[in-house]
Simulated assay, not measured.
Amino acid sequence: MEKAKNLRPAKSKLPEVRCFQCNRLLFCGIAEDMEIKCSRCGAIQYIGNSKQESRVNISSW
């Protein structure tokens, strides 16, 4: 039998969290409570049990 050189144990795929406005990937994983700002469009997204709402941060540079 031939051995495969690049054998790795299968990882369980973590859920993806994407920006609700531009669909950019923000992170992969599970978060309990967090607030994250999209670096592309500036939208602020709340993730977790306490807040399930999202808002847009409109700022001029």
Results as ranks from 00 to 15, higher is better:
1 M>K: 09
2 E>I: 00
2 E>C: 00
3 K>S: 12
3 K>R: 14
3 K>E: 15
5 K>F: 08
6 N>V: 01
6 N>S: 06
6 N>I: 00
6 N>M: 01
6 N>A: 06
8 R>Q: 12
8 R>K: 10
9 P>K: 05
9 P>N: 06
9 P>I: 04
10 A>I: 00
10 A>K: 01
10 A>C: 00
10 A>G: 00
10 A>N: 00
11 K>M: 15
12 S>C: 03
12 S>R: 02
12 S>G: 02
13 K>M: 09
14 L>S: 15
14 L>N: 15
14 L>R: 15
15 P>D: 12
16 E>C: 05
16 E>G: 04
16 E>V: 13
17 V>R: 05
17 V>A: 04
17 V>M: 05
18 R>K: 13
18 R>G: 03
18 R>M: 04
18 R>N: 07
18 R>T: 04
20 F>T: 06
21 Q>A: 07
21 Q>H: 10
23 N>Y: 05
23 N>K: 11
24 R>C: 07
24 R>K: 13
24 R>M: 12
25 L>M: 02
25 L>G: 02
26 L>P: 02
26 L>T: 04
27 F>L: 06
27 F>A: 02
28 C>S: 15
29 G>E: 04
31 A>F: 04
31 A>C: 05
31 A>Y: 07
32 E>M: 11
32 E>F: 11
33 D>W: 08
33 D>H: 14
33 D>K: 10
34 M>Q: 13
35 E>K: 11
35 E>C: 10
35 E>Y: 11
36 I>R: 04
37 K>E: 15
39 S>K: 00
40 R>Y: 09
40 R>E: 08
40 R>G: 06
41 C>G: 02
42 G>Q: 03
42 G>D: 03
42 G>S: 07
42 G>C: 01
43 A>K: 04
45 Q>V: 06
45 Q>C: 06
46 Y>D: 10
46 Y>A: 11
48 G>A: 04
48 G>E: 06
49 N>M: 10
49 N>E: 15
49 N>R: 11
50 S>E: 13
52 Q>M: 12
53 E>A: 06
53 E>S: 07
53 E>W: 06
54 S>M: 10
54 S>A: 10
55 R>C: 09
56 V>I: 11
57 N>A: 14
57 N>H: 12
57 N>P: 01
59 S>L: 09
59 S>C: 08
60 S>P: 07
60 S>T: 07
